[in-house]
Amino acid sequence: MNTALRSAMASAGLSPRRLAVRVGVTGKTVERWLADAELTPHARNREDACRALGVGEEMIWPQSVKDRVKSGYDRELVHSYPYRSACPSDLWGELIRGASRELFFAGYTNYFLWSQVPAFSETLRRKAGAGCRVRFLIGDPEGDVTRDRERAEKVTLTVSTRIRTTLEQLSRMGPVDGLDIRFSAAEDAVYHVGLSVFRFDDDAFVTPHLARLVGHDAPLLHLHRQADGGMFDRFAEHAEELWEQGSRVPV
């Protein structure tokens, strides 16, 4: 438990719900901060929380201060998870809601986002309306790579079904200015199916897919851009190249 955070909240007379309102997150998110002393919230949320509590960041989240003195490109690795499913579900929502310029979902199927993020379609529509660029790069449900992957995974919820679920959810949204969807090109699909990149402005989740495992069993890296040419840029450029070669999907 993060006893330093609990003590600071008590001194400031703030309950988890009231602190959540001040920071702009859910009460469940604050409860998660309290329950895990090793968890370091997003930088913007740390700053807002410390301002509301009237304490320094080093008191509540000392690891964040240590992380800032990392050298080189190591600074860009915020956290690593052995499984995508181990990444807190609230973190997806925090990063999506916090983005103002760029939301790029370059997973091969992306279908899980609607169950992972509450009111996901409404959030996308609101973001696009506020000028945020929203993109989905998905695999072709009829493609050879999709069929090969289905044979490898051997699961009931097939790759093509997961892709069609995403297409159906996007279709239900109707035309949205600022929302673009593409299939990855046939010659690039093998690179796409093996690596998912999800970008939220200067943060990204990267998931390299292992052997026959489905996406939620693959490891996940949380990156935050710090400098030109770092890990964030390398993976972002990979996704951009696949996007440029892809074909537009009318919904």
Rank of each mutant, 00 (worst) to 15 (best):
D144W: 07
A130L: 12
P82G: 06
D144F: 10
S115Y: 10
G107V: 01
E102R: 15
P118H: 05
G131L: 12
A119M: 11
F120D: 02
R126F: 03
R75H: 12
L91W: 07
A130Q: 09
E122P: 04
L103D: 00
E102F: 07
E94D: 10
P88G: 12
F136Q: 00
G93P: 01
G98W: 01
V134L: 11
L137N: 02
L124E: 00
S89D: 14
H79S: 15
R84H: 13
P88K: 12
E142K: 11
I138E: 01
S121N: 10
K127Y: 01
P141L: 12
G143K: 01
E122K: 09
L77I: 14
F120R: 03
G93K: 00
L77Y: 13
R101F: 13
A130S: 15
G93D: 12
E122R: 08
A128G: 04
G107S: 09
I96N: 07
A86Q: 14
G129N: 11
L124W: 04
F112Y: 10
S89L: 14
G143T: 04
E76A: 14
L95F: 11
D90K: 13
R133K: 15
G93F: 05
F136E: 01
I96H: 11
G143C: 06
L137I: 04
N110I: 00
R97A: 13
C87S: 11
Y108R: 03
A128I: 10
S85T: 13
S121V: 08
A86W: 14
G143Y: 00
R75Y: 10
F136R: 03
R135A: 13
R135L: 14
G93A: 12
F120V: 07
W92D: 07
I96V: 15
E122H: 06
Y108L: 08
A106D: 00
G107C: 06
A128D: 02
D144Y: 12
